[in-house]
Write a protein that binds this DNA or RNA. Structure first.
Length: 264
DNA sequence: TTATATGTTCGATA
DNA sequence: TTATCGAACATATA
């Protein structure tokens, strides 16, 4: 689920769900503590009886301020999700749960357990430590261009590099490259300033559209590449050029060969 | 059975 | 020291 738009939508969902609510207890459902990067005792102590204040999102990293306390950081990995529920039956793949005074509960679900739950005193210091780049929705086109057009790595790999720009994930990178008619293996340093500008515009447009649609991809406009992002699919504008799958930087990468030619 | 999945990190190598 | 690459992580589904 989680690239920038999903995390932003979850941030809003989280804020609405926890507003004004007191946490009466929290519960842990990951026996080997893979996703708890802070000790259970610390999480329990910081959260029990507390309320959340403001929230922040930088790239795919989410932070919620615990009133009069530290911040809670959530990362959703590949399969993380937030699910509001009532009653005692945990949603599938619940790894952690907040239990509010209202009787409402909020589960952090994560099938693959690549997610992260941890405390931090300072979100900005936290992302600085990771050398995280500026958020795609905040960065200006000049900085974007400068950070992207560096090195001999494939442009696809550069787009996914969170240290350059934060928030772009695998499907958005493919969508941007399709939109800009760029081949994913084009070396980053071969991208022109104009192409970088185009990628910047494309990236924001895609992300804003995704947020506006609450990340329900099915609701995206018909021309979006995401609808055809599988081997052999036919984009209506390229009926003679079936979608091809490559592997770039270890990630599945889909292109319309007639539109995205190498060395261009 | 093998391959793949919307992400990040770590070790090896250059 | 920096850049790059591939493997690893955990689990379900095609």
């Amino acid at each position: 689920m989680p690239e920038l738009p999903e995390v932003e939508v979850m941030r809003r969902y989280f804020s609405a769900a926890v507003e004004g609510q007191q946490i009466v207890r929290v519960s842990f459902h990951d026996p080997l503590d893979k996703i708890f990067k802070s000790p259970r005792e610390a999480l329990e102590k910081a959260l029990t009886g507390a309320r959340f204040g403001e929230t922040q999102r930088i790239g795919k990293y989410f932070f919620a301020h615990i009133a009069n306390g530290p911040w809670l950081h959530l990362h959703f990995g590949m399969t993380g999700d937030l699910v509001l529920y009532r009653g005692n039956e945990l949603p599938k793949y619940t790894r952690f749960s907040f239990h509010f005074q209202s009787g409402q509960n909020l589960a952090f679900c994560d099938l693959r357990k690549f997610g992260v739950i941890q405390l931090t005193d300072d979100p900005l210091a936290f992302v600085k430590e990771l050398s995280l780049g500026p958020d795609l929705l905040k960065i200006n086109p000049e900085d974007f261009s400068h950070r992207l057009r560096r090195g001999k790595v494939a442009i696809k790999t550069a787009l996914l590099d969170q240290k350059r720009v934060a928030g772009i994930g695998n499907w958005i990178a493919d969508e941007m490259l399709f939109d800009c008619a760029l081949h994913p293996l084009t070396p980053a340093e071969k991208i022109s300033k104009e192409q970088a500008q185009q990628l910047w515009e494309s990236g924001r447009a895609i992300v804003e559209q995704a947020i506006a649609e609450d990340t329900h991809y099915g609701a995206f406009p018909a021309g979006f590449f995401v609808h055809y992002r599988k081997g052999g699919a036919l984009h209506p504008e390229y009926p003679d050029s079936p979608v091809e799958k490559l592997t770039v930087g270890g990630r599945g990468t889909y292109i319309v060969p007639a539109r995205q030619k190498a060395g261009n």
